[in-house]
Structure formats: C-alpha cells, structure tokens
Design a binder for these strands. Structure first.
Lengths: 234, 234
DNA sequence: ACCTGAACACCGTTCAAGT
DNA sequence: ACCTGAACACCGTTCAAGT
C-alpha cells in the first residue's frame, strides 16, 4: 500500500460505503488497478472501468487522486515496491544488477499498461526512494565513484524500463503478433539481390526478432561496466 | 512518400476535391500527420485533428487507411526513411553504428507521438527493409557471424527505439518537467541516515537524471560489441 | 468514386445534488 | 463527509446519404 500518496482533502474520519457496499481506500484502489492491468492487459485501465471494478461511481475516485496521473504514480510506486521486495543482495554486484534488471523487466511485463504509461515517470514516493537507494548502493559498493555510479545507475535503470515498455507493447498486444508474422512472411521472402544481408540472415531473423532483446542488451551493458571497473582498478 | 501502403480499395482514377478544396493522397495524409506530430507534440495526432488539418471530414481518411493502426505504420515507415536518408557509410563500423543510433534517437525525439505509438512496430514496408539491410550490413561487414549480427542488430535497434520512446515521453511532456523537479525538491532533500547513497550523490542525481541516458547506454553497448569482436579475432 | 454527416460506444473530468 | 449522476468536451469507427 502506498504510504505517501498526496491526498486531495485532509485525513478522512468516517467512510461512507459505496452503493454496492465497498469502502474505498487509496490502497484498495491501487490494488484493484494493478489487478485490472494484470488480468485485462492492454486497454484495461480506465477510470470508468476501475470505478466499475470497485463498485463505485468513477467520479468517486477523484476524491482520492486528483487526476489519473496522480493515480498512475501511486500505482507505479506500488509496482516498484513489489518489484524490489523479492530482491536479496548476494554480495556480487554483477549478479545483483542482473537480478534487479530482470526483476524490473519481468514485473512491468506482467503489468503492460503501467509499463507503457508510467515507466518513464518519477513517482517521488517511498518505494522509489528505496529502489534508487539500493541500486546506487550496489554500484558504489562495487567501487564506482559517485559520478560514475550515478551515470551508470541512469543507463541501467532507463534501459530496463525502456525495454520493459517496448517489450510489453511489442510482445503482448495483437499488433505484436502481427509484427512477428511480418518477419516470417515479408522479410524471409525478400529478394537476395535487393537485400543480400537480410536474405543471408533470414532464418536467424525469424527466430530472434519476435523475442525480447533485453537479456542481450543487459549482458552487453554489464560487460562494459565490469570492463570499466577493471580498467579503473589498474 | 510511402510506396507500399496497402490500399483499402483499388487504385483511384478520379479524385474529388474535399469541401475545402484539398485533394487527398496517401502521401499528403502521411506528411500532414508528421507535421502535426512535430508541431503539436504530445496529444497532437488524432483522426479528427488530422481530418481538420487536411480540410476533410475525419471519416474520409478511412478510405486511404483501414484503421489508425495502418496509418501509423505508414507514418512510421516514412519516418524511418527520413531517418536513414542522411546516413553516409564511413567505412568505420563503430562510427556508423554510433551515427545511426543517434539518428534514430533524434528523429523520433522530434516526433514524440510516433515514437510512443509506433517505435515497437514492424512496418513491413520499403523504408524499414532498407534500414534493416543497412544495419545488418554494418555488423556483418565488421566481422560478426550471422547469428551474432542478428542478435546485436536486435539489441542495438531496440535500445535506440526504446530509449527514444522513453525519452520523448519523459523529456518532452509537462509530466517530464514535474519529474525533473522531483529530483531537485524531493531526492536532494532526503535524510542521509535513511538514504545514505542518495544523499551522497544528490548533486550528481540532480544534474544527471533530467537528461537522456541514451548516449551513455549506446557507448556501453558499442564498447561491449567492440570487445567481443576483438576477443573473437584472437 | 469519393466525401460528408449523423450516430454509436467509448474516454477523463467537473460540479451540483443527494444522503 | 463522502458518493452519485448528469453533463461537457473529447475520442475511433461505421454506414447510409449525398454529389
């Protein structure tokens, strides 16, 4: 449950149950939103649908969140919390970063709409503070100086979030399925005269392109970080 | 102008000018859409707005594109074409990849809505074919084997596109400006007891986080590719 | 053959009215 | 103090009617 949500009004004392009996709470709204995103995927999250899922009039939500944007940040922060909750430091900075990267990617993959709408946002809330603190700690603990730690933090986190948003959009949706077909049915049939490089690698393209490239990109990034650290140590 | 747009009806012979006098064309629609995205940024691209900009009823566009999705792919392919049009091979594979990466990122940055909606799509059209062919050519020319060339192509392109989508969303919008403030006003003031790593690097965070991390991420990726190539050569 | 205009089923958000 | 319901200004898309 998000603890630092900016409330529109002051603290509530009495709570009137909704017409269908539920008692609204910031926590309940965020939880229900995450369930909605998880189950209905793509276009699942709208104020009106969320209201219906809660058994409340959509406009009632504006008493808890000033706008969809504010609600989104609360949802995102809760997701960050769940993401980092399973992380256990191993003492090996490379393994820690690899684990955190995969965790971020996987968590957002299961909540596509949040990935697309909020991955690039700064929630400015407690779970995000804790996540930033942890990742910076891994990098500084590895031996990077403060300036490098921050730059590498930025590249590492943005890469995880950016790929998560891209992959949920590309892999989950019906559009993504159509795009996978394009590699088989269009690219694999292009003329070797006009497109020699595509023709030469068509088999690989058909296998590789419908998957996520994040694992690849993560390893390339980590490899560079390790190399830079070794180089600085000498 | 996109050359392979799937037409809804057969080829048109006569064209009736619109009420306001314009004669619709697939090319004109795509051009106008790109101008709209470029000038009005964020929420600029809707069927209704595009119709208004063309001086036509919104529903007239459905005669040229079966859906917004199809229109989007045509727009995206045109953007890919403009992106690669300025590329000149230098003979140095690293410089070529760096240049293409920056080009992709910059082109989508200027057309934020396309970046967010279409960056992850496969257009299956000529400009995209040419771009894939070129980039695969750079990697194979560098000495990578076919399987590696394809995997590295995938990581490289998806990284450029994913960061472009993330950065246009984060940096351009009003939400992005609010998020930049969060680093100054929230993170820079967190207690050193609760968040030692954030407190120790606060100054760096405030400077680094409101910028794009793509340049960093790109260099880390290229560094790894170069190292792998050297290693394979031995 | 092509464009228009009304219609349908959706959005987020506001605000006066209910309890 | 909180929830409801009508209203407003938007969406994408369809289809009969116009020219």
């Amino acid at each position: 449950m998000p603890t630092t949500t900016t409330r529109v009004a002051g603290p509530r004392q009495r709570r009137r149950p909704t017409k269908q009996g539920t008692v609204l709470t910031e926590g309940l709204i965020v939880e229900t939103a995450l369930r909605l995103v998880r189950e209905h995927g793509e276009g699942g999250l709208t104020v009106r649908r969320l209201g219906a899922a809660l058994g409340a009039d959509p406009s009632a939500l504006y008493r808890y969140f000033g706008s969809t944007d504010e609600l989104l940040l609360a949802i995102d922060d809760e997701l960050i919390g769940r993401c980092m909750a399973g992380h256990r430091p191993s003492g090996d900075w490379l393994a820690d970063l690899r684990g955190i990267g995969r965790r971020i990617h996987a968590t957002y993959r299961d909540h596509p709409r949040v990935a697309q709408l909020a991955a690039y946002r700064v929630t400015g809330r407690t779970h995000e503070f804790a996540a930033v603190e942890t990742i910076l700690g891994v990098l500084r603990g590895a031996g990077f100086g403060d300036a490098d730690a921050v730059r590498h933090y930025h590249a590492f986190v943005d890469q995880a979030l950016a790929f998560a948003a891209l992959d949920t959009a590309a892999l989950g949706s019906p559009a993504g399925a159509a795009d996978a077909r394009a590699w088989r049915e269009r690219y694999a049939r292009l003329s070797p005269d006009a497109y020699p490089n595509i023709a030469a690698t068509a088999g690989h393209l058909v296998r590789e392109m419908p998957r996520s490239a994040y694992e690849q990109a993560l390893e390339l990034l980590l490899e560079s970080l390790a190399m830079r650290l070794r180089r600085a140590a000498r």
